[in-house]
């Protein structure tokens, strides 16, 4: 493939062009065509990230200013109750949604993999929520969990008078109300991933385990699950990076309430930046988000690409 020398001046290119349409000239086109990519990579992904990190050490409020105050924003951040609640919520939501997505996703995939009738119908039903936005998801579940008209009232009218299930107005369990909606929206996709993984397993492995007389459940646990490691890692990365970004769902379903009981970090950042005119707080909080992504991402990247040293 054409790998040309980078250190050519534009005039050299001009000359080349008039002489013969060679590799260098053609590759110049490729470079020009790649300008949007290069600009995005450098200006947005590197530039903006660095800019935000740098400004998180300032005391910017309404407008960004380069008056450095050291780690003051971070200290203040970790003293803010709202941020602590956000972190706690994220932790609960994260752990639960990770476990539930894996369990539900894998179980459904395994059930669908048992050569059942109507597989396509079930798959379609499990996956459609993934096509919907978090806003739609949040609003539907807000309505279904509505204490006056939703599940709680229906069950009560069936005769179980004392039944109480009102997560969205109960500060202690509101995050689980959001979890129900989040799992509903996303677990179908994890199922699809897992199903693809299961379908990728050599048919002969199943045959061998039948000849060996291994029960189906034991084959899954002892043989198949260990073989699915790459799929699990992909799912893990996808779920985690999704969890950290949770924002719209909370905005739509609870607006962070009751009180501040269902706040999440992403929402904290946006509000500090665009509503309470406390830019540097927002920058510091978003830097913390970046840090948590890196904690997940770096080990993964190391596992995935660390072995082979070729980009």
């Amino acid at each position: 493939m054409a790998i040309a020398d980078d250190a050519q001046s534009p005039s050299a290119v001009q000359r080349e062009r008039t002489q013969r349409p060679n590799r260098l000239f053609k590759n110049m086109t490729a470079k020009i065509a790649s300008i949007p990519m290069v600009a995005t990579a450098l200006v947005i992904f590197v530039g903006c990230t660095v800019w935000t990190i740098v400004h998180s050490f300032t005391n910017s409020r309404l407008l960004p200013r380069l008056e450095f105050v050291g780690f003051e924003q971070y200290e203040r951040l970790w003293e803010t109750r709202r941020w602590l609640v956000s972190i706690e919520n994220l932790a609960i939501y994260g752990v639960c949604s990770l476990i539930l997505s894996f369990v539900i996703g894998f179980t459904l995939a395994a059930l669908l993999d048992r050569k059942i009738r109507g597989e396509a119908v079930f798959r379609t039903i499990f996956l459609y929520p993934f096509a919907l936005s978090f806003i739609v998801t949040g609003l539907v579940w807000q309505w279904i969990l509505n204490p006056q008209f939703g599940i709680q009232s229906v069950v009560q009218r069936w005769g179980w008078e004392s039944f109480a299930f009102d997560p969205l107005n109960n500060a202690d369990i509101v995050i689980y109300g959001i979890l129900i909606a989040g799992i509903w929206q996303g677990s179908g996709f994890i199922m699809v991933l897992m199903l693809a993984g299961l379908r990728g397993i050599d048919e002969d492995i199943w045959k061998a385990s039948r000849v060996d007389g291994i029960p189906v459940w034991k084959t899954y646990v002892v043989v198949i699950i260990p073989m699915m490691r790459p799929v699990f890692i992909t799912a893990l990365v996808i779920i985690t990076s999704g969890i950290i970004k949770v924002y719209d769902l909370v905005v739509a379903q609870t607006s962070g309430g009751p009180g501040i009981a269902s706040e999440v970090p992403a929402k904290y950042v946006i509000e500090k930046m665009f509503q309470s005119q406390n830019l540097a707080q927002g920058f510091a909080a978003s830097t913390m988000m970046l840090l948590s992504v890196l904690i997940v991402l770096i080990p993964w990247a190391y596992l995935e690409f660390g072995g082979k040293k070729r980009g």
Partner: peptide, 20 residues
């Protein structure tokens, strides 16, 4: 009968060894 009850052993093209 189930494969395991038939008194057979089988060898596959892809070996089908349990990798873990």
């Amino acid at each position: 009968k189930e494969p395991s009850e038939r008194g057979i052993g089988m060898v596959f093209q892809s070996y089908a060894l349990y990798p873990q």
